[in-house]
């Protein structure tokens, strides 16, 4: 039972959260401290780092499902073990307060609390990130962006913060800033295929639909290619590749021959129409295969996100219809 709580999946569905948080009574039943007096208790306690990770994840699950009581117990246990001033405990306590805050006023209060903590010790990166997350959930993106920019000035090797900042900029339609942030993420984790694909998506969205959008589109397509190269069967990569090659095909036809051969500003020349056609074809084939196999529930094809598969099916169907006409 603890294995799932020990290593929960990075993206957790509400149903899974509920299931995990319902394990609370069993997990909390385990007592780690021993009943013997101090020096002897060291010898008999069954304490392991895993227990604390489990309790922490249980706390997060309980916060997601609104299980106030179990969350409180988890938090109290962690506080008892690691002390009030521990950085992580500060953050978890803040999350607890945020999760059960009743109105905006209570959220403002947690914000003040974070500010006070940071005044005393500004090196607490986790608290700073928590503050940015709180600002984001209070729908004050400008403040969240400022907080993150301050954080990244001090700690420019923080992947999480760069990625979050990119999403915030993207939500504000500040595409070039979002792209810059994602490039920073890639500089730290050069082989993250999901980041390559995300960068491709933003490039695709940001490139305007007039004729000088070619450069962005081409790079977007290449980013998708790279993400597929790094990870076979990456659905988002194929989806993006199909969409971007389709638009690229129509754009390439309108663009004059001279623009094609001009390597803009030292960047790469766009690929030939033939290559793009082949890529489009391959992406369509692969997408159809993924939809077919994952819908049929074939072994080895079940890990895809149902929502993404559904969207892919729409895309593939739409495409075949236009061909039929």
């Amino acid at each position: 039972m603890s294995a799932e709580l020990l290593y929960p999946p990075p993206q957790i569905s509400p149903a899974d959260s509920l299931r995990l948080s319902q394990q609370a009574p069993q997990v909390l039943k385990i007592s780690v401290s021993s009943s013997l007096p101090y020096p002897l208790s060291l010898l008999t306690s069954s304490e392991t780092p895993e227990i604390w990770t489990t309790i922490e994840n249980l706390l997060l699950s309980c916060l997601r499902t609104g299980d106030d009581k179990s969350a409180r117990v988890c938090l109290d246990r962690l506080t008892e073990r690691f002390g009030e001033t521990n950085e992580k405990i500060l953050v978890l306590r803040g999350m607890y307060q945020e999760a059960f805050a009743e109105d905006n006023k209570a959220l403002e209060k947690s914000l003040e609390r974070y500010d006070k903590i940071l005044e005393e010790d500004s090196t607490l990166m986790l608290v700073r990130k928590r503050r940015a997350a709180l600002l984001k959930s209070m729908s004050r993106p400008t403040n969240a962006i400022t907080t993150l920019v301050d954080l990244l000035d001090v700690s420019p090797t923080d992947v999480e913060a760069w990625a979050e900042l990119s999403e915030l900029y993207f939500a504000q339609s500040l595409y070039s800033q979002a792209i810059y942030c994602l490039e920073e993420v890639l500089l730290i984790t050069p082989n993250a295929w999901s980041v390559h694909a995300r960068l491709g998506e933003i490039l695709y969205i940001s490139s305007p639909s007039d004729s000088n959008s070619l450069k962005g589109l081409v790079e977007s397509m290449r980013r998708f290619c790279r993400s597929i190269e790094l990870c076979d069967d990456y659905l988002r990569g194929y989806y993006g590749l199909k969409v971007s090659t389709k638009r690229l095909l129509s754009e390439l036809q309108t663009v004059s021959k001279s623009a094609l051969s001009d390597p803009q500003n030292g960047d790469l020349a766009p690929p030939s129409v033939k290559t793009v056609e082949k890529l489009n074809e391959a992406a369509t084939r692969k997408l159809a295969e993924i939809v077919r196999r994952s819908t049929a529930g074939e072994a080895g094809w079940e890990g895809f996100d149902p929502a993404e598969v559904h969207a892919t099916r729409e895309l593939v169907n739409k495409d075949t219809q236009t061909i039929d006409r």
């Binding site: 000035d153 001090v154 700690s155 420019p156 090797t157 500089l187 050069p190 960047d267 790469l268």
Partner: peptide
């Protein structure tokens, strides 16, 4: 902290420059 991480960022830029476009 800022000093050390800024240096790290510079090193990252040098090592992983392949992910960036030339411009």
């Amino acid at each position: 902290l800022r000093e050390a991480r800024a240096l790290m960022r510079g090193i990252n830029l040098r090592n992983n420059n392949a992910v960036l476009s030339p411009s």
